[in-house]
Nucleic acid binder design. Structure first.
Length: 615
RNA sequence: GGCUCCGUAGUUCAAUGGAUAGAAUGUAGGUUUCCGGUACCUAAGAUGAAGGUUCGAUUCCUUCCGGGGCUACCA
């Protein structure tokens, strides 16, 4: 596997205690288990793996003893029993233990739960990990300037932005970049069509968003092209040949040549249309809530990389064939020979990417780089990373292709030519509309100004969309069902947002009642199971960030946030909070509620989703 | 053809080699004179097939079946 994760998922035991609120307890238990194994069976266990106890069993942590049966030469249940007794006698944090076959389930003292809760209360940075003093560069979005953004781009943008947020929370300095594909034959196609059929139309005159206007002419080109092919075929020309000979295609090729030679009229048209597209994209990005520290354009970078090819030739990394083209031999890596420079000396896609890697390093000096690009380019990035390694540069290591699967529609694959694409702007607008009508039906936003209401509709609509796309493992191909995506119940963004809003309502009320929501430390409470589970989830927040960062997987955060909201609702349903008569219980529950609210807000932010206080 | 990724309830998604494979949705029931019902609870329902490794396999290995992607001197 080439795509080695460069942020190793470390066992918790190696991480500094200050990072995780649950960690001190875990380590204490791991240490006791280690000592127990040594004391009872003379087993020197290097690694103690603790797992979360399954819901249907009593306990918090589970230790699996099966691996030690041989060394201990006893039955699994017997080992577990002895270890459990040892734990109870030697670790004051343990309240009880249960043995099920080879599984030892450990329950914690109530005081330990309060201790964890207090730990979070006192944590100066409860939602971020320690600064790792390291830069990470992330490239995402990477659109073409000849067509508007579609559903696939939404997955890309949401993923890229979310991973940036997660890495930032995990303590990295994150630099967000976007490499826009603004040149090439496909761009000339829309330029040519505009020249032929545009009649001087502009975004202003047509009322179309700039990128949609340009996209319209890309489609127009394709239409005209097909007609010409058809005509040629009817004249008896071979279809394959017709595709190459169609006059409009030849004109587009001429135009590309003229562009590369800086022909002023072509450049002027190109710049004009680019301006429109970039204006359009800027609006879409604003609506998506994503941003970039630097936007690179291929028109500025496509010539880079030739110098690297020269260097590589001198070092023997590349070789030149008789016709003058330059190649790299990757057969030892299980790949093929790959072209890096055409025989006419011009660069190809991969040459440009080599150059851009160097340019980005010169600009920011980040040794780690993440490319958020669809999995149809897996092979390309495999080759690129091998080449960069062989060039042995400061940016040769630490590259990662965050490869994500395609988004399918129920009707099948999205195809721009057949008009079965889901346009990003349309979809976002539709989601916001749905959010609006649902919210107005419920009638809970009286007192909102028109502006506040609109902001809320955006937050809810985009929240639903982002959550829908991010909850799935990025690697996997996913199905986009328009009806389900606008659902606001169940495992959805609005469900989580609603839970947050409800908590906010409660803390507002508590504040007006003059209740202090921070519990007093050191007191011992008898905790209900739903309270313990909530504390457990809250205490796990930082390790979830670590896990999500290590795997570049916003889905980990999405799943966690959903579990947290669900657990809160259970807790909320079972127990009284503001109406609780016992003041100590009321305070601790209120503390739990407000902490849950803050945690939901923080983790939704990692997904790029806003948590409104009222909805 | 070669390389590669993926096949889990009707559907959409989960599950560092661990317990009775979890959720959501849909279906069928139920709860709350209560702090915001977009809530909570209950039920039925699934690992493509066959082997292998293991105390233990959705997970690792092999073969087969089915699907996606890549296999351009395009980007």
């Amino acid at each position: 596997m080439f795509a080695l994760n460069w942020l190793p998922l470390q066992p918790l035991i190696f991480i500094k205690p200050v990072d995780f609120n649950m960690l001190g307890i875990q380590q204490s238990i791991q240490k006791s288990l280690q000592e127990g194994l040594q004391h009872l069976f003379s087993i020197d266990a290097q690694e103690i793996v603790l797992q979360e106890t399954k819901k249907e069993f009593e306990g918090t942590f589970t230790f699996v003893v099966f691996p030690f049966t041989k060394q201990a030469s006893k039955a699994p249940a017997q080992i577990a029993q002895l270890l459990g007794e040892y734990m109870l006698a030697n670790n004051p944090k343990i309240k009880a233990f249960q043995v099920v076959q080879g599984f030892l389930n450990l329950s914690l003292q109530d005081a330990v739960w309060v201790e964890i809760l207090n730990g979070i209360n006192q944590d100066a940075h409860p939602f971020t990990l320690a600064d790792k003093k390291e830069k990470v560069l992330i490239e995402y979005s990477s659109p073409n300037t000849n067509k508007p953004l579609h559903l696939g781009h939404l997955r890309n943008n949401f993923l890229g932005f979310s991973v940036s947020q997660i890495l930032d929370a995990a303590g990295y300095e994150v630099i967000k970049t976007n490499l826009v594909n603004d040149r090439g034959i496909h761009i000339c196609k829309s330029m040519l069509a505009y020249q032929l059929f545009g009649n001087g139309e502009t975004p202003e005159s047509s009322g179309l968003k700039g990128d949609h206007l340009v996209g319209k002419y890309y489609v127009a080109f394709d239409k005209a092209y097909k007609v010409e092919i058809e005509t040629l075929v009817q004249q008896g020309i071979d279809p394959e040949e017709a595709k190459k000979q169609a006059p409009i295609l030849l004109k587009a090729q001429d135009m590309l040549l003229a562009w590369e030679q800086n022909e002023p009229s072509v450049i002027a048209l190109w710049e004009q249309m680019n301006t429109w597209v970039f204006d359009g994209f800027a609006k879409s990005y604003a609506q998506m809530g994503v941003s970039f520290d630097k936007i690179y354009r291929e028109s500025n970078t496509y010539l880079l990389g030739k110098k690297l090819v020269d260097e590589g030739l001198a070092q023997g990394v590349f070789f030149r064939k008789d016709d003058g083209s330059v190649w790299i031999d990757l057969t030892e890596e299980g790949l093929d020979e790959k072209l890096v420079l055409r025989r006419d000396g011009t660069s190809v896609y991969i040459t440009q990417d080599m150059g851009t890697a160097q340019l980005k390093y010169e600009d920011f000096g980040a040794k780690r780089s993440v490319y958020v690009v669809g999995n149809e380019q897996d092979y390309h990035f495999e080759v690129l990373f091998h080449i960069l390694k062989k060039l042995n540069k400061p940016f040769s290591e630490g590259n990662y292709h965050l490869s994500y699967g395609m988004v399918d529609l129920p009707s099948g694959k999205m195809k721009s030519r057949e008009g079965t694409v889901v346009d990003a702007d349309d979809l976002m607008a539709e989601m916001v509309n749905t959010a609006q009508s649902r919210t107005l039906e419920l009638g809970k936003i009286e007192g909102f100004s028109a502006e506040e209401a609109n902001a809320l509709f955006n937050q809810l609509g985009l929240g639903a969309l982002k959550y829908f796309l991010l909850k799935v493992d990025p690697k996997k191909r996913m199905l986009f069902n328009p009806e389900e995506s606008i659902d606001f119940q169940g495992n959805t963004g609005p469900f989580i947002q609603y839970t947050h809003a409800r908590i906010c309502s409660m803390t507002r009320k508590a504040a007006s009642m003059g209740i202090n929501i921070k519990i007093s430390a050191g007191k011992s409470y008898e905790l209900a199971e739903s309270e313990q589970e909530l504390i457990f989830l809250l205490g796990n927040y930082k390790s979830k960030i670590q896990e999500a960062a290590a795997q570049f997987a916003p889905s980990v955060i999405a799943q966690y946030t959903y579990d947290l909201a669900k657990q809160f609702n259970k807790f909320y349903n079972e127990l009284s909070i503001l109406n609780e008569e016992n003041v100590d219980s009321r305070n601790i529950r209120l503390n739990l509620a407000s902490l849950t609210g803050e945690t939901i807000k923080a983790s939704l932010a990692l997904l790029g989703i806003v948590a409104p206080e009222r909805m």
